[in-house]
Design a protein around this nucleic acid. Structure first.
Lengths: 194, 194
DNA sequence: TGTATCGGATACACAAACGTATCGCTTAGG
DNA sequence: CCTAAGCGATACGTTTGTGTATCCGATACA
C-alpha cells in the first residue's frame, strides 16, 4: 500500500470495478454512463474521478483484473488435468459460464480492434495466455507435424466463439454444450492415430 | 415504390446505412452519435429522423440488410461448390474479409444478447442461415451418426469466431488463415473414414 | 405546366452527461 | 490526542446530443 493510502481505497476501487462489470454488460461500453456505475457501487462521481481518469481507464483496469483471475484459474486446472483429451477438455470447460464476462470481454476485444494501442496490449496478454496453454499441451502426444501454436489458437476460437450462440438462445443451446462436443473433435483429429 | 414516394428516398436511406456501418464500426453502437452518421452521409439530422425512428431502428435495418447480402453470397457459393471438403472450405471462405462488418455484426450479437426481443430476431435469422447450410451439407457423405445440425453450428463458431484473433493482430495472423486450417480439420474428422 | 405532396434543412428548446473545484469527514502517523 | 493528508461528497458551469416543429426547395402526377 503506497505511502499515505488508506485501507478503504482498494475497497472503493473493487466496488467500482464490480459495478462497472454489470453496467458495461447491460449497457455496453459506449452506452454506460459513469454516474450509473457510481450509483451501482454506492458512490458518487467524486469517488470515480478520484480513482480513475476516465471511463476508458476503468475499462482497461476491469478487463486486466478479471482476465488475470480467469486465466489463472483455467491454467491452474489444465495444469493439474489428466494428460488425456477428455481430461483436457474437462479442465478447459470446468468454469462458471459467466454471461457478463462474455459480454464485457467480447466488447473489450472490439474496443481493442478499434484502438491500436489497446490492441497491442490485448495481443500481449493473449500471447501470454497461449504460451501458458502451449506449455501444458506440450506434455501430451500429438500427431507428428502438428503445429501446436495453431492448435492453441483453435482452442481459443472454440472457447471464446461458441458462447456467442449459447447466449443468444441459452435455452436451446445451454452454455458449454457446443464447446464440449467440439473440442474433442478437434483434439482427437491431431492425436496420434495409434 | 409506395404511392407518393420519390426516387431519391431509397438513396438517402442507403447512404445513411453505409455511413452508419462506418460510424458504428469506428465508435461502437453506444458511442456513435446520430449527427456523426448524418455528417458522414452528407445529410443533417432532419434526413435521419425522416427515415428512421431511432438509432436502434437504424441498427436493426443495417444488420438485416447487410446480413441478407452476406448470407446470400455464401449460400450461393457453397451451393455451387465441389462436393468435397476442400471445395466446401473454399466456398465458405472465399469472401472479402470485411473488418467493419465483423465489428458491426459482433456488436449486434452483443446487442441481441442484452435485448430479448432482438435476440429472438437474431435467433430466427441464424436459424434460417443454418438451415440453408444444412441443405448443402446434406449432399455430402458423413461419418454415420454425425449430427449435421451440430456440425453447422461448429462451422459457424469457426467462421465467426476466428476473425477476432485476426483483427486484433492482422499482421501476425492475416484474416482467413486460421479458418482455412481449422475447417478442414473439423470436416475431415466427420467424413467417412474410407 | 401547375400544384399538391414529399423530403430534407434549419432552428430551437430540453435534457443528460461530463469534468472540475471545493468542501468536510475520515484515517494514518506521530 | 492532534494534525496533516487522503478520500469521497457536493455543487457548480459547460458541453454535447437529442427530438420536434417548422420551413422551403424538389418531385411526382394530372
Amino acid at each position: 500500500m503506497p505511502r499515505g493510502t488508506t485501507k478503504r481505497r482498494p475497497q472503493t476501487r473493487a466496488r467500482l470495478l464490480d459495478a462497472a462489470m454489470e453496467v458495461f454488460a447491460e449497457q455496453g461500453f459506449g452506452g454506460a454512463r459513469i454516474e450509473d456505475i457510481c450509483d451501482r457501487a454506492g458512490y458518487t462521481r467524486g469517488a470515480f474521478y478520484s480513482n480513475f481518469g476516465s471511463k476508458e481507464e476503468l475499462f482497461l483496469a476491469l478487463f486486466d483484473a478479471r482476465m488475470a483471475v480467469v486465466v489463472e484459474q483455467v491454467v491452474d486446472r489444465v495444469d493439474r488435468a489428466e494428460p488425456t483429451v477428455d481430461g483436457l477438455v474437462t479442465a478447459l470447460l470446468d468454469y462458471e459460464h459467466d454471461r457478463n464476462w462474455y459480454l464485457v470481454s467480447t466488447e473489450f476485444t472490439l474496443h481493442a480492434i478499434r484502438n491500436p494501442q489497446v490492441a497491442a496490449h490485448l495481443a500481449a496478454r493473449d500471447g501470454w495466455v497461449r504460451e501458458q496453454l502451449l506449455g501444458v499441451l506440450g506434455r501430451l502426444d500429438w500427431e507428428p507435424g502438428t503445429d501446436l501454436e495453431a492448435l492453441v489458437r483453435m482452442i481459443v476460437v472454440i472457447v471464446e466463439g461458441a458462447p456467442a450462440q449459447s447466449w443468444v438462445e441459452p435455452d436451446r443451446l445451454p452454455p458449454g454444450t457446443l464447446e464440449r462436443r467440439m473440442l474433442p473433435l478437434l483434439l482427437n483429429a491431431v492425436r496420434p492415430s495409434g
